[in-house]
Computed example of a mutant assay.
Amino acid sequence: MVRLSNSLVGILNLLSFVLSVPILGAGIWLLKRASTDCEKFLERPVIALGVFLMLVSLAGLIGACCRVSWLLWLYLLVTFLLIILLFCFTIFAFVVTNKGAGEALSGRGYKEYRLGDYSHWLQKRVNSTKNWSKIKSCLSDSMVCSIFQDKYFSDTSENFYIEHLSSLQSGCCKPSNDCNFTYVNPTVWNKPADSVYSNPDCSAWDNDPKVLCYNCQSCKAGLLQGIKSDWKKVAVVNIIFLLFLIVVYSVGCCAFRNSREDSYYRKRGALLN
């Protein structure tokens, strides 16, 4: 049992260490080629994750294989804190993504999105001028509306209205259905003269490819819909990873206890001799 628990901890941490290498490599690759705000935003957490996973795996691997009690203790402490952190994040993710959904429209294949439908915490994040400036830069860099324009350019208005658009395409690349603009092509719409709009997004719309509806509330809502969907998937993965960590932590506790017992008996044997 002593050898089995230590061997299991060693094998599991060896796998974690091997996994950390490509994660760290991907972060360094992003760092070297980063030229946009999106890439600069992504590189730091990827590198931090790779380094963290590598150090924790090394601590668990050396502690289990070499019976180093203090390293195993440190490894178990970090693993326990990680379990608490993942548990809290998973609950938080489900709470903040519980509200919000697209509004189905009669005669339309796509849905439209309202910022007020989402949680106040998410709304606060995208309503920050500093945050939204970075997000707009990312949306521009990803060419989400350029791809949208090319894909549906040949559509007539009848064909366009029945397309199944993503939340970002619906919210950021076309005007709201409330505006009743005249369709020319997916990103060019004619505004009626001297119209008064109840929806402020109608005034924010511009046919300029660099503007479109990037300043609209619907664009922020479309982004939050995508985040909501992604966070729910991440939360499910977190639950699986959480169960895995609990198993590893339990085995690690056995290995730590075994290491302490081995150390005690070695010292006792040395004193008797």
Rank of each mutant, 00 (worst) to 15 (best):
Y152F: 15
S146K: 05
L49K: 01
L71C: 13
S198H: 14
G27F: 06
Y113N: 13
N180C: 09
G171E: 01
Y265F: 03
D194T: 07
V21L: 07
I240Q: 08
L77R: 00
L77H: 05
S250C: 14
A26F: 02
L4H: 13
T182Y: 10
N238T: 03
G63E: 02
Y113H: 14
P200L: 00
P175Q: 00
S35F: 00
C179Q: 07
A26G: 04
I227Y: 15
C172H: 01
P175A: 03
D208K: 13
E163Y: 10
Q123F: 02
G269T: 09
R268N: 12
N190L: 05
K191V: 11
D230A: 05
K174A: 11
C202E: 04
N177I: 14
T182A: 10
Q217I: 11
C173W: 01
G109A: 09
C88A: 11
F181R: 14
F41A: 12
A34G: 07
S218G: 08
T182Q: 14
V236I: 13
T187Q: 06
T187S: 02
S166E: 14
C202I: 00
R33G: 06
Y249M: 03
L122F: 11
V95G: 02
L168F: 09
S218V: 08
S198D: 15
W73C: 14
S157G: 05
D230V: 05
P22L: 06
K220M: 07
R3S: 07
W73Q: 15
S133M: 01
S146R: 01
K210F: 10
W231L: 10
D150K: 07
V18Q: 02
S195M: 12
V56R: 12
T79C: 15
L61D: 08
F92V: 03
V68Q: 01
Y183F: 10
R44Y: 05
G102P: 00
